[in-house]
């Protein structure tokens, strides 16, 4: 067995200075593109990610405060989460509650591909709930999940337009808007501890937790100054409960 090992070394430690400079240049050109979302500065990191301390706890006193952490670089688009979600929540073929976005950056060094799972962000400040004329969409007072009372849904689709995350669709089978509810109806309310997608994820890219509990894994992961944590579309001011980072 003869292998030219030098050619195979592509760890970033062995990348030449020029290559590294190139990489930084790309990084500057498309900041946020690599991260897969808008990177928060450290100051907003604390405000955005430390969603369970200080004024946040007073303003959004959910117990448990359900949350999901997406460790973006661990996602390999095996789509077992989507399969599990579809099966658990009887999602019709024309709809989805969660999806995985694919991004290819041809001029990146090394890995050129990235998968970004997206789902309802269960926002602390949900635009969909504000626009609903009949309060069919509401934020659960106990656990902060954005839920739908199907019988009240008039199907005006204002919430679909209001959502910055394309998380909603009209479900013909139940004749109401459908969206991710962290599997509250199908799993959490029946004693399960995880959402269907998080339970099915083989890599740990999706971590489900409770950010009102300091011993919780998600709580601990997102409360670290040295870790870059971000949320999707922070400019929309929705204060999401789905966080992103790289493991």
């Amino acid at each position: 067995m003869k292998i030219n090992t030098e050619n195979l070394k592509e760890d970033m430690n062995t990348v030449s200075k020029i290559e590294r400079r190139e990489f930084l240049k790309i990084g500057f050109l498309i900041t946020g593109v690599f991260a897969g979302g808008t990177v928060l500065s450290l100051a907003s990191n604390i405000r955005g990610a430390f969603a369970s301390t200080g004024e946040f706890t007073e303003k959004y006193p959910y117990k448990p405060h359900y949350s999901m952490l997406i460790r973006q670089n661990l996602c390999v688009d095996c789509e077992r989460c989507i399969e599990a979600c579809t099966k658990t929540n009887e999602v019709p073929s024309y709809g989805y509650r969660t999806i995985i976005l694919e991004k290819v950056v041809p001029d990146a060094i090394g890995q050129k591909r990235e998968f970004i799972p997206v789902l309802c962000n269960q926002c602390n400040n949900p635009p969909c709930v504000r626009v609903c004329p009949t309060r069919a969409s509401y934020k659960d007072k106990n656990n902060g999940i954005v839920m739908i009372e199907r019988k009240k849904c008039i199907g005006c689709k204002a919430c679909v337009l209001a959502c910055p995350y394309n998380a909603r669709y009209f479900n013909e089978e139940v004749h109401a808007i459908d969206k991710c509810d962290f599997c509250f109806d199908t799993r959490l309310s029946k004693g399960e501890k995880l959402t269907g997608c998080a339970a099915a994820c083989p890599t740990g890219a999706r971590k489900f937790g409770d950010i009102s509990d300091p011993n919780d894994f998600v709580y601990q992961m997102i409360h670290q100054i040295e870790k870059q944590v971000w949320v999707m579309r922070p400019e929309a001011g929705t204060k999401p409960n789905v966080f992103y980072m790289k493991a």
């Binding site: 592509e10 996602c75 390999v76 688009d77 990235e114």
Partner: peptide, 14 residues
């Protein structure tokens, strides 16, 4: 060569 524990989506095409 790069570690199999890193750069997941370099080989995983989903």
């Amino acid at each position: 060569a790069f570690d199999s524990d890193s750069q997941c989506a370099r080989c995983h095409i989903g």
